[in-house]
């Protein structure tokens, strides 16, 4: 059975999540031990009880004030106080260590959360270095990354379990999160604040790669879209500019709207519709034509394209690597 990609209990892949992991196990361990102790105490207490299928004649059992029980409360409180105090201190230390954004982030990203997708903007010294992508974040391994969170519509929450805890994305304020991956890999992220119909389908990938691979990826993403080559692609481009461009952006073309994911390098991404579908031809066509069937309530309306139009669009979009 595949492990859950959102599992934060069994391993962590970066220092921020790693600092939390031992505390999670510690508190979980204490919790289980406490439950077992209480269960045992209860069992030994109840075991002595009188049984009866019929209603026991209550009056026949003597009532007595009984032994000093206050001791139980005192002992119980004192024993409980120890793990509580330890947790309190450990909490403060961990919070101090990981809460604040890193003093020298190696990368600063601006993430805008919208119903039901993630826009990520990469910055740079020149205006041409700035680019936006959607639902997939690439970061270099071993580098602290500052994430500035912007609320596009309602409250969402940014969560990559293997790298970091949750930070809400709230309209009207810019929350800061940070993460660092210490080993290369693909880490799944999930929106974690109920945000409407498709909260269930609002995921994103964080891809950690070597600095060299990251630089290559970033350079590619900075490029505008390649011009169309085949006649289908040319027709496809026209269609994309005319139709998709109402909401989407493809840099280097007339499609320039920003209310939907940037498609300039669509094929470089693993998934479609914020983690809902794997990015392949069949799914792409299915998504374009009938998004309401796959992600009902999403902002993208069904397209009602003809077979020819679909195939042209596909031809063009698949060139956006």
């Amino acid at each position: 059975m595949k492990p859950s990609p959102l599992d934060y209990l069994n391993n962590a892949a970066g220092p921020r999540a790693q600092s939390i992991l031992p505390m999670t196990w510690f508190t979980l361990g204490i919790s289980i031990v406490v439950c077992v102790i209480i269960a045992i105490l209860l069992w030994f207490a109840v075991r002595r009880a009188r049984h009866g299928d019929r209603l026991v004649e209550m009056r026949s059992i003597p009532v007595e004030r009984g032994g000093e029980g206050i001791r139980w409360i005192g002992v119980g409180l004192i024993i409980s106080a120890v793990p509580l105090a330890a947790t309190l201190v450990w909490t403060m230390l961990t919070l101090a260590a990981i809460a604040g954004p890193p003093a020298h982030p190696g990368l600063i990203l601006d993430v805008t959360a919208r119903q039901w997708w993630w826009q990520i903007q990469y910055n740079g010294l020149q205006p041409t270095d700035v680019f936006a992508t959607a639902n997939e974040i690439h970061i270099p391994v071993g580098v602290p990354v500052l994430v500035r969170l912007h609320g596009g519509d309602v409250i969402h929450s940014f969560w990559v379990p293997k790298l970091s805890g949750k930070t809400d994305v709230i309209p009207g304020q810019t929350n800061l999160s940070w993460m660092q991956a210490d080993s290369p890999g693909r880490y799944l992220g999930q929106c974690s604040e109920f945000c409407g119909f498709q909260h269930a389908h609002m995921q994103f990938d964080v891809v950690a790669e070597t600095q060299a691979d990251f630089d290559k990826w970033q350079a590619l993403q900075r490029e505008p879209a390649p011009p169309p080559v085949t006649p289908e692609q040319t027709r496809g481009l026209a269609l994309v500019e005319y139709r998709c461009g109402l909401c989407h952006r493809v840099r280097g073309t007339e499609a320039g709207a920003i209310s939907a994911p940037d498609l300039t390098h669509l094929m470089s991404r693993r998934s479609l519709a914020a983690g809902t579908l794997l990015n392949n031809s069949g799914n792409l066509v299915g998504w374009i034509q009938n998004p309401q069937n796959i992600k009902p309530g999403s902002q993208m309306p069904n397209q009602y394209l003809s077979a020819q139009q679909l195939s042209d669009a596909l031809a063009y979009l698949e060139s956006l690597k």
Partner: peptide
């Protein structure tokens, strides 16, 4: 728990 332990519990 102390009340049960130090009393004479009856299962109902």
């Amino acid at each position: 728990i102390a009340t049960i332990r130090l009393g004479r519990p009856v299962i109902t």
